[in-house]
Design a protein around this nucleic acid. Structure first.
Lengths: 246, 246
DNA sequence: ACGAAGCCATTGTGATCACAATGAGCGCGC
DNA sequence: GCGCGCTCATTGTGATCACAATGGCTTCGT
């Protein structure tokens, strides 16, 4: 008997064990899909690919209801995204996608330039031809989305292109830092492309791929750096110069 | 009237509202001490200053009991530390301080060298004489702990010295990246000093302070970089070369 | 005596409830 | 008619319970 006299809940099963969580026994091999992890991944992609505009607020119960789970796993997923600076909790206890400022944007550009060329350089030492081919296909997807004006598709393919390279570096710690950075400018990036469109975009992906193919380390690092500088310069000009950040 | 017939819990107050949390109305100015935040800060300091050795495991209920709260706020604090890579959850669902590997250590050194000199450089543009004096006092505390062989005290003062500088940069995003990095090598650093002691240590704090005072940007960046290279080299040699990482 | 199988304590996960605080909506008073 | 105050819905926070899974320990069988 527990310390609390419980009055035997007459109707309604108290716990439902939640549809999706413990059902799959062992489908493929590594399915550790705790509910909060799948929630995390869903929110993360929405943020990363521009699904949520900067400044927009989210509520635990709101997401919980829209996903059909209790607020509990949402809490943990949101807490994690806050720790990764993808979300921000203000003093009101309101959770929102943090608005961008010019200073923060410059910090992000610096960090990208400091870390991503190194990641690419390390990837070059371990990458195989098969991977390069796969990365080239990501680049073609980028081009396709660009001419179609498909902004979410462009952002997704662009992310895949970069991280397909970076993941080859086998540098989990640096990769985590860079992922956190991308999470922070994702919503802002979407905002810029939403205003300007993708038609005027150009990138340095081809130069990076070709340098990767001929194992030209300095060329690769320069191409990545140029891609960052040019892309981020474009985004910064598009948004920061013309209007407020919210 | 809520939607659920509530049976008026007869005895024993079901919730205690936890001692410390909502009591302080507005002591100083910014007291947003949710329980999980104070738990987070406590754990964070323990990790940062070498209170927990690499590889040691922690349990939610264990910490909860030792802190006199329910496992709930612990869960959020731990989740946050996991997101910051200070803790790691392995597939067993066991939470532990991640062990160091040589590769990860090299990533950390690279990231520190890439980010911290920049932070110091930015700090130089905004720092005042009063702050420099305060930072110099941190350095004296470092020296004191060093001759006393007080390893936790050394680590704490060393942290304070570096971050007192970095905080002046007004670069929250970069600062957060660097904090995450320090959280990752804190336990490992402690391990090295525990083996070797602090008596043979030397740092480049004086050079950094003097460069800061005469606004010598390149000298400051070089001093910070030298401090990192030398200190981390020492730590790496002390541990990685002589024994396994656990 | 050694091995394996089963039992049980412990751990993280999720749901539900209770509560304080923020904030918006409404009504009353001047 | 306009402004101020109150009320209540909504939000995040914390506690407690229920549950599945991992792991260690005991115990039975050979």
């Amino acid at each position: 008997m527990s310390k609390r006299a419980r009055s035997a809940p007459p109707t309604s099963p108290p716990h439902k064990r939640t549809a999706v969580s413990r059902t799959a026994p062992k489908l493929s091999e590594a399915s550790t899909v705790t509910t909060h992890e799948s929630v995390y991944r869903g929110l993360r992609e929405r943020i990363l690919f521009g699904g949520v505009p900067p400044g927009s607020a989210i509520t635990l119960r709101g997401i919980a209801e829209s996903m059909g789970v209790s607020p509990m796993p949402i809490r943990e997923a949101v807490r994690r995204l806050i720790a990764e600076r993808a979300l921000k909790m203000q003093d009101n206890r309101r959770v929102l996608v943090p608005p961008m400022t010019e200073g923060r944007f410059r910090e992000i550009v610096f960090a990208r330039l400091a870390l991503e060329p190194e990641l690419a350089s390390r990837a070059m030492d371990r990458i195989g031809e098969a991977e390069i081919t796969r990365i080239a296909s990501h680049d073609r997807a980028v081009d396709r989305a660009m001419v179609d004006g498909d902004v979410p598709g462009y952002m997704q393919s662009n992310f895949r292109f970069h991280f397909a390279i970076y993941e080859q570096a086998g540098a989990e710690t640096l990769l985590a830092l860079v992922e956190s950075i991308w999470l922070q400018f994702g919503p802002f990036m979407r905002m810029a492309y939403g205003r300007i469109g993708t038609s005027t975009l150009e990138d340095h992906h081809q130069a990076a791929l070709s340098a990767l193919g001929r194992r030209d380390r300095e060329g690769l690092k320069a191409a990545i750096a140029a891609d960052i500088s040019q892309g981020m310069g474009f985004i910064g000009d598009a948004v920061l110069k013309h209007a407020e950040t919210a």
